[in-house]
């Protein structure tokens, strides 16, 4: 039954891939140090879960998760328009904390810390994705479409403007581009994909609560983007695979049971440090952010 375990890991890779390539769009390609990605993921998961529990069909919940997250992406982009670098990073991080606090305290809507259990399995055109293999196919197709769309965006004239903004925003503005609008689009699109990743997560795990969307969930996604290399989609894919699978071999190392938990975490952290020190520009990093 090893295949069930592998299918599970592949589903996680698929969800993380959508999350990471969309973060790559805002961080790597547009140069926006966006630490609010997990908040969009949370918004998508909650919208999707609440609608699904209300009995609405999968495609509707799924799309609305993306659109809802995109709406918040635009809001965040508009409000942080003037911020750059560290300040933008901190403001978006604060946004993550605020969304977390809302999901925890707005108990009337989200049931707060009790979470939302029993999210139904998705069904499309009368077919229910009840077993993990069919769910994997669904995730794979969505991840592939997301990847193709984001690749398309980065290679389009719009994508080149985004890269120009990253490299020199002032010069881009002088050339007559509305950089504010462009940045908002980038963040909005990025948020859309984070939202649909959140929707897939909610459908897959069937249970969500606020603790699934905290700083400790942001760290692996950010690590994927950095280790993959900024503005490299190929690197992002490889890094997603590496980072999702990284904890798995550690499960098979025979530590004594008294230290098993901390020992695995320490090795995980050390491997992360090692990669960061050896490849500070990531696997395929083309650019640097300052």
């Amino acid at each position: 039954m090893i295949s069930a375990y592998l299918i599970h890991l592949l589903i996680l890779i698929g969800i993380y891939l959508i999350l990471a390539i969309s973060l790559q769009l805002s961080v790597g390609f547009t140069g926006l140090l966006n630490l609010g990605h997990i908040a969009f993921y949370a918004i998508g998961a909650y919208i999707s879960a609440l609608l699904a529990l209300a009995g609405l069909p999968f495609w509707f919940c799924f799309l609305l998760a993306g659109i809802g997250a995109m709406f918040f992406g635009f809001l965040l982009a508009i409000s942080t328009n003037k911020l750059k670098g560290d300040y933008l990073a901190l403001a978006t991080l604060a946004f993550t904390f605020v969304i977390y606090a809302i999901t925890l305290n707005w108990t009337g809507l989200t049931r707060g810390p009790l979470g939302l259990p029993g999210i139904p399995k998705p069904s499309l055109f009368g077919f229910t994705f009840s077993d993990n293999f069919s769910f994997l196919v669904l995730v794979f197709v969505i991840a592939l479409i997301s990847y193709l769309i984001i690749t398309r965006i980065t290679k389009s004239p719009f994508g080149r403007v985004l890269e120009a903004i990253r490299d020199d925003e002032l010069a881009t503005r002088v050339l007559g581009k509305n950089t504010f609008k462009m940045k908002s689009y980038a963040l909005g699109i990025s948020a859309f994909f984070a939202g649909i990743a959140g929707s897939l997560y909610a459908y897959y795990i069937t249970f969500i609560d606020p603790s699934s969307f905290t700083l400790s969930q942001l760290i692996p996604v950010l690590a994927i983007v950095i280790i993959g290399g900024l503005a490299s989609l190929k690197g992002t894919i490889i890094a997603t695979i590496i980072l999702v699978l990284l904890p798995e071999p550690l499960r098979f190392v025979g530590f004594p049971s008294s230290i098993i938990g901390p020992a695995r975490q320490m090795i995980y952290a050390l491997l992360l440090l090692l990669i960061l020190i050896k490849k500070p520009r990531g696997l395929y990093g083309r650019i640097e952010l300052e």
């Binding site: 560290d86 975490q265 500070p280 640097e288 300052e290």
Partner: peptide, 21 residues
């Protein structure tokens, strides 16, 4: 190695995980 700030931030997260464990 001229790592950017975001790498240093990431590194500090890794250090935090390491020491807490």
């Amino acid at each position: 190695r001229k790592a950017s700030k975001v790498i240093l931030l990431m590194t500090s997260f890794a250090l935090l995980i390491f020491f807490e464990s």
